[in-house]
């Protein structure tokens, strides 16, 4: 068995695939505009699998909703993530997964920045530079082995977060 970088990480409670977003009347209103917000971005990336453990980024507390900043008008998004340990060599790969996921799931008008949360990784600067360099990301994805790993991590992310149902009294009669 190969040794894992972090053998025994701390596990956090995740909301079992459900989005913590509450259902609103407006969700089904044809004319209401739903802006893209931090929760939506979080729902897109929370269930990505960690490359090392069969756990989601949310369970490992790598991604948190509060660490995502979105401005729908300015078309900018900043996603900060926290590696489980400061010397985690998987940080770049995790960042790459988030990058690819957002590339695929967001309209191209957005400028997405992905960064390691300040002070949580030894080579923070290098990782950030790598993740936000278009050419290097594109080059990384030319590598079919790497791409396969990324796709594997993203395979669990397709659910996108289901909206939790709010309590609405007994079911109506038919």
């Amino acid at each position: 068995m190969t040794t894992l970088i972090n053998q025994n990480p701390v596990i956090y409670e995740a909301s079992a695939g459900n989005s913590t977003r509450e259902w609103r009347e407006d969700d089904e209103n044809e004319d209401a505009v739903d802006v893209i917000d931090a929760q939506e971005i979080f729902d897109l990336i929370r269930s990505i699998s960690d490359p090392e453990h069969p756990l989601s980024l949310e369970q490992l507390n790598v991604t948190q909703r509060d660490h995502i900043t979105v401005s729908d008008e300015d078309d900018t998004i900043l996603v900060e993530f926290t590696p489980t340990i400061p010397h985690c060599s998987m940080a770049t790969l995790i960042g790459l997964c988030i990058r690819v996921r957002l590339l695929r799931c967001l309209p191209s008008r957005f400028k997405v920045d992905i960064a390691v949360r300040k002070g949580t990784h030894q080579s923070e600067h290098a990782v950030n530079k790598q993740l936000n360099d278009k050419e290097r990301v594109a080059a990384a994805l030319e590598n079919s082995h790497l791409l396969e790993v990324v796709n594997q991590c993203l395979a669990t992310a397709t659910s996108g977060g289901v909206v939790a149902n709010i309590v609405r009294g007994p079911a109506p009669a038919n």
Binding site: D27, A32, V33, D34, E40, C105, L106, P107, R109
Partner: peptide
């Protein structure tokens, strides 16, 4: 469609 105004 990724930029549809409805989240659903």
């Amino acid at each position: 469609s990724l930029d549809d105004r409805k989240r659903l």
